[in-house]
Design a protein around this nucleic acid. Sequence first.
DNA 1: TCTGTTAATTGATCTGGATCAATTCTGGCC
DNA 2: GGCCAGAATTGATCCAGATCAATTAACAGA
Lengths: 257, 257
Amino acid sequence: MPPPDHSNVVSITHLRQTCRSCSLRELCLPLGLDNDDMQKLEDIVHSRGPIRPGEHLFREGDSFHALYAVKTGALKTYTIDNQGREHVLGFHLGGELVGLDGIHSGHNRCNAVALQNATVCAVPFSRLEQLSREVPGLQAQILRVMSREISASAQLATEHSADERLAGFLLSLSRRFRRRGLVANLITLPMPRRDIASHLRLATETVSRLFARFQEEGLVAVRRRDVEILDLPALEKLGEALDLDGDGRSRRSPQTR
Amino acid sequence: MPPPDHSNVVSITHLRQTCRSCSLRELCLPLGLDNDDMQKLEDIVHSRGPIRPGEHLFREGDSFHALYAVKTGALKTYTIDNQGREHVLGFHLGGELVGLDGIHSGHNRCNAVALQNATVCAVPFSRLEQLSREVPGLQAQILRVMSREISASAQLATEHSADERLAGFLLSLSRRFRRRGLVANLITLPMPRRDIASHLRLATETVSRLFARFQEEGLVAVRRRDVEILDLPALEKLGEALDLDGDGRSRRSPQTR
DNA sequence: TCTGTTAATTGATCTGGATCAATTCTGGCC
DNA sequence: GGCCAGAATTGATCCAGATCAATTAACAGA
């Protein structure tokens, strides 16, 4: 069942953006840049918004010309398969990039739609490529972000059972909330159960039942979209903790070699 | 059940490599470079091999310092979860890169092991970063390859049922064989059923039964590791055809907008 | 050629999660 | 407040694929 076609792709006033004063500069492309280099980045970036819930930032098949960094709100990316079913590929919160999968083919490979009121920065890709040649720190950050995305999808692939997947999902959100300076154990889910289910390849009912079970077992307290993590270690035991900002050893016991 | 620890990480004679005479130059990092630039790439690349089946190229947790391009043979990457189960993340054939997921943390996030006798080119990452600033075509190719990896994992995530996943897997292999100039409908699987099963999150027995069913239905002819694709359209209908070298529109019917 | 070993197949059974089917909640709107 | 539509929960049943258990095939080494 394809989702309702809310509206066409958003097209809003383009405003200059100042990375230097952005609260997300430590998680986003500017990470590691000095003031001068950050200004060069600002010069190619445009702010866009607001995008209303249900409005699309881009659609599958559109020609690719920019990456988008989420400033506020949240987006999801999804595809529609040849049988008309929707598959949620991922969720994008403040400081995260959308559209990386479009680079190689020159066309966007998924749809990106706002879950809440959102604002984003558009980064024209050809100018970003050019600038990243001049600014090594920027080039390094782009590669890091893409590499992290590859790691993260490998992570999702290793979680087999339904409870592992939901636990891993909650941990991932928690970590991303913490990165943004929010309380890590108080999550407000920006998406409905249906989208969580689609992303984790589960039925909505299963997600609902798992939330109930996790609550019974004292792992979390759930009320609608609000989730409080009560027993982090137990959750981590279920869905492996993959700390994508760590040193790559967090998942293994100390090695003896 | 963790796999037997065959041996330590491989460490073999380092030989200069000539990308210009490499038959894989049109699929690998040199794609799109002119002769001069290709020579610059050669100057930082070392050839390594042979790596015997079961020998590791690197292990999870090792500090990351190089990407590897497969020249001959095939590798798999995998992780061991906190319950000791192996999860196969992917397979790497001639012309493909291994190790991209290690960039962001500075440590390899998975193990890489040879499935068959293999030779690889080691590309020291810091020198690659540096060179890609001077050689725009190289920078572009790295980003394309990483973007393609992100797309591919999204693809795997959208295939739900067991037959969709196996069909998608066969199509992906077929496409990669064709890229290397081999016959696209005659595949020799470089990996055992167990690894296919782990990669697709299925039981070995299920993979075996699916091969039998596909054969019954006339989709393929299977004999041990040799698979002949007999009915490509039917296979594509099952596992969506995602042509990662195409224009991004291959999965959608022509758009009317 | 036989023999041990691992890979693959095939069969029988079991179960986690999907599906179908009602309710119940919640927030927006009159 | 009362009413409505979509979101979420809860219950009953079903089935795809896992698991358990043999059996057969391929192959390396003696």
